[in-house]
Design a protein around this nucleic acid. Structure first.
Length: 270
DNA sequence: AAAGACACCTGTCCGC
DNA sequence: TGCGGACAGGTGTCTT
């Protein structure tokens, strides 16, 4: 579900309701997410949220006692609601605030996570080895080209690897490769520097545009106040197997790479 | 270090 | 209508 644009949309959505607010209470209905929600998360209660940031697909809620790390997995979402609104199925964790708002994590598949870091969260095991932010300056042609040398995986799997660059999931990997005119099957180690230059450019464009559009709603992604994203209207290949390429009209193909579906145009992408 | 398979879990959709 | 199987926006872990 959420890739970087959806997570960033979520972060921006909760920000005005929780930043500088005091955590009143944390309710854990289902602790068994991808990892068990640690009891120590209750140390947040009574603390003020000092910042609401994002690293990769993790949302970080910082307090003076520690930082909550929230990951939405494949099916997770955060909603802003008023304290007292009844929880429904799959509503696993609530963060209640003294302003009577709450942030509710819903995650049917439970691949998401709520963790607690008492030290520098950027040094947390799951975060410290992540690749650069795709919209930052250290994600650039030189970096990506150098990182790709000697790599035998496909370019698509390469850019989806969070240790190479964070935030590029299945949708935006497919869309970026289409816009760059690169076959998803090309081997990462064989792609020219010139083509990496184009790829870096389009990844930044595609992600920035998707954030502007509030993310992609395929089925159940919603922004924190329940509205869908709109980027799905701009998808060129993802989910369009058998349909006509919007550029050349040949049929969009679907294959499996690393057990994930890949959509591409074999005429536009070489 | 790198690559590939597998794991986690629930809901939905499609074909019979 | 029911049932089995495939599939879904992610990513850590284990094995080669």
């Amino acid at each position: 579900m959420p890739e970087l644009p959806e997570v960033e949309t979520t972060r921006k959505g909760i920000l005005p309701f929780v930043d500088k607010q005091t955590v009143a209470k944390i309710i854990i209905r289902q602790p068994k997410l991808r990892w068990e929600v640690p009891d120590a998360i209750h140390d947040m209660e009574g603390e003020i949220i000092q910042s609401v940031t994002r690293r990769g697909k993790y949302i970080l809620l910082e307090t003076s006692k520690g930082t909550a790390l929230i990951h939405l997995g494949m099916s997770g979402s955060l909603r802003v609601l008023d304290v007292g609104v009844a929880a429904e199925k799959h509503d696993h964790v609530d963060f209640e605030f003294s302003n009577k708002k709450l942030i509710r994590l819903r995650d049917p598949r439970r691949f998401g996570a709520v963790l607690w870091a008492t030290k520098n969260p950027l040094k947390h095991k799951l975060i410290r080895s992540l690749g650069p932010e795709p919209l930052g300056d250290d994600f650039n042609t030189d970096y990506l080209f150098l990182a790709s040398r000697g790599r035998k995986v496909s370019i698509k799997q390469f850019i989806m690897n969070g240790h190479v660059v964070v935030g590029v999931g299945n949708i935006y990997a497919c869309e970026s490769l289409f816009k760059a005119g690169i076959s998803p099957k090309a081997l990462a180690g064989k792609v020219s520097k010139k083509r990496y230059e184009k790829l870096v450019e389009v990844i930044k464009e595609v992600l920035a545009r998707a954030i502007e559009q509030g993310g992609t709603t395929l089925k159940d992604f919603v922004q924190v106040e329940g509205n869908p994203g709109y980027f799905q209207q701009e998808l060129n290949v993802y989910g369009r197997a058998g349909e006509a390429c919007l550029v050349c009209e040949s049929s969009i193909k679907q294959i499996k790479q690393g057990q994930r579906s890949t959509f591409y145009c074999s005429k536009c992408q070489k």
